[in-house]
Amino acid sequence: MNYLASLLVLAITTALINNMVFHFFVGNCPFIGVSRKVDMAFGMGAAVTFVTTIAAVLSWIATYYIMAPGAPLATWLYRALTHDPVKVSDLSILSYIVYIFLIAWAVQLVEMYIRKFFPALYKAFGVFLPLITTNCVILFVCLEIMKHIGLDAADPWGLDKALVYAFFAGFGFLIAIVIMAGIREELDHCDVPKPLQGPGITLIIAGILSLAFMGLTGVDGNLARMIAKKPATAEKAATPQAVDVHHSYSVAPDQPATLNP
């Protein structure tokens, strides 16, 4: 139960709160470039989700077994070659190069597979696949996963968490780009000031959307607390009085957050 709960919190955090586009700013190029029509946006989002998941699995395997500090396969090889029984290998300097080629490879693989076996699907989002290699979302997800593997990782992730993280990161991108496309379709009927037409107004709308998504901050913390009700001795002791003050953005910008007088 606890395990499922942690996955749920991770999924919600990734897709909604730390949304790839609105919080980490990754994947902005397609977000601005391919968000004119809802169906195209959906195709792009779906393609990104798909490739991200596959690339994340590949990079988790490569990192866990070969590149992370103390990775079993590389360490075994290193020890066999040098007859040094204590030292561990650390190939993490290669990780950026490996990731980018894994991503390119995954994109090629997915493209060929889909063209062969799902022609209809290929028609729907095949055109976006080559563009995806340079989509920051995928590399960003690989890098995040890298941080959670290895001897000195504070919060190690297994393949399960990496998979959930990658899928929901892509899903968050899908949500963002579809919402944006919906707005931009309506925007065609509006009278936008000339200098702002095109990317300008898109960015401003993205800013407003990002403001809206910020309203979800804190959902993860409260959800985690709600699910983990029981280890309360320490938790409860910390909470008795200050319950009525909400941590929201409306309280504060006009008053500097200092200690109470």
Binding site: E235, A238, A242, V245, H246, H247, A257
Partner: peptide, 13 residues
């Protein structure tokens, strides 16, 4: 901290 109750509560927890 005013306006950051949950943050301060989390740290203490």
């Amino acid at each position: 901290i005013t306006g950051a109750t949950i943050s301060s509560r989390s740290v203490v927890g």
